[in-house]
């Protein structure tokens, strides 16, 4: 949370996460280069390095893009989401090794600047089969660089959440560019059906996973309809909400998380200020609503993070009448106290 900025707020889980990433990278590179050198002794080390790091980066990108929808479908994947930015930065570094070696190997030591060679060496931009695929990889690497460079809460706060989010959604553009980079590049020479199947299969997996997760999510955006008492909209029954948990209801186009905290009910915006995590899927831990994505916390009655943290989210006024929860559709300003509604003694 944002009491101050450090390069990395290390904790035990992050260290284990990063060690696992490192082990995975070493395993992949070791296997690819070792097996490649054994099976193809005539291959140059540069070729094996370029191919090992390029394919590893693409594989890691598949994992990165899978984690989000998997966590939407099964909450037990959330630990993989917790430190995903380290996986993203690691993937960028692998892609950078691939790009740098390729740039030196194929474009350096010639009669023009390597960048000119990369972008204009093969000028057949009007052709599909002859398209200069390197440009696609170069643009994708640029996007991944921007994402890796801003993959910190400092940039999230200073760019503003919408700009930061839009920037990081470019990962899907980068992914598409990289699929084309492979399809129009190496697969034009290595026309192996298994390789084509792996690329198409990976693309199909990512698309399917996102569609399934999206369809699962869609009913949550349906506007809630219920009785209205004194301008308060009926949301749900108290009995529908487990203690320390929430029910998410779409009111006035916004998802509202209605939490039960012992004998009281409170409602806040469902979107965490950090990365728009679904607070209503979180829990109340130590008296605070806790985001399931990165553990950001907010007091249920004020929507403010406990001191010294400074995040704030909008609250909603609530009432409980005869065991039913009613919510004022008008949100309060972020951080403004809304009196929790007692469950018992309500009329």
């Amino acid at each position: 949370m944002s009491a101050g900025y450090q390069a990395v707020l290390w904790n035990r889980q992050k260290k284990r996460y990063d060690l696992t990433i490192l082990a995975g990278i070493l395993l992949y590179i070791g296997l690819f280069v070792g097996l490649g050198a054994a099976l193809r002794p005539e291959a140059t080390p540069e070729t094996l390095i370029i191919r090992a790091f390029g394919t590893l980066a693409l594989l890691m990108l598949h994992v990165i893009l899978s984690v989000g929808p998997l966590a939407r479908l099964d909450r037990r994947f959330l630990p993989l989401l917790y430190n995903r930015r380290h996986l993203g930065v690691s993937m960028f570094l692998c892609a950078l090794v691939h790009g740098a070696f390729s740039m030196i190997q194929f474009h350096a030591l010639g009669d023009v600047n390597p960048l000119v060679s990369l972008l204009a060496g093969n000028p057949q931009y009007a052709s599909i089969s002859a398209f200069p695929f390197q440009t696609l990889g170069f643009v994708a690497l640029g996007i991944l660089f921007l994402m890796a460079a801003t993959s910190h809460d400092f940039w999230l706060a200073n760019l503003s959440a919408p700009v930061w989010k839009a920037l990081h959604m470019l990962v899907y553009v980068a992914y598409l560019l990289l699929v084309l980079h492979v399809a129009l590049g190496i697969l034009q020479t290595e026309r192996n059906l298994v390789l084509i199947g792996l690329l198409v299969g990976g693309f199909g997996w990512i698309v399917t996973l996102h569609l399934v997760a999206g369809f699962r999510e869609k009913p949550g955006d349906a506007p809630h309809r219920g009785d209205v008492i004194d301008g308060y909209l009926h949301a749900c029954a108290v009995a529908d909400i487990k203690d320390k948990r929430a029910r998410i209801v779409c009111i006035s186009g916004e998802r509202v998380a209605i939490f039960r905290n012992g004998d009281t009910i409170s409602a806040v915006s469902n979107a965490c200020q950090h990365q728009n995590g679904p607070l209503g899927e979180g829990r109340i831990v130590d008296g605070c609503i806790t985001c399931p994505w990165h553990g950001y916390q907010y007091e249920p009655e004020t929507g403010a993070s406990p001191p010294p943290f400074t995040e704030k989210i909008p609250t909603f006024n609530v009432r409980v009448v005869s065991g039913e929860v009613y919510v004022d559709p008008e949100p309060n300003p972020a951080g403004q106290r809304a009196e929790p509604a007692p469950i018992r003694g309500s009329s």
Partner: peptide
């Protein structure tokens, strides 16, 4: 995931076409 990565690494390394001599 690690098993998948190992499988992909092995498959891709093995599926490389032979290189011309030299």
């Amino acid at each position: 995931i690690l098993l998948l990565a190992a499988g992909v690494a092995g498959a891709l390394a093995a599926l490389q076409s032979p290189f011309d001599p030299g």
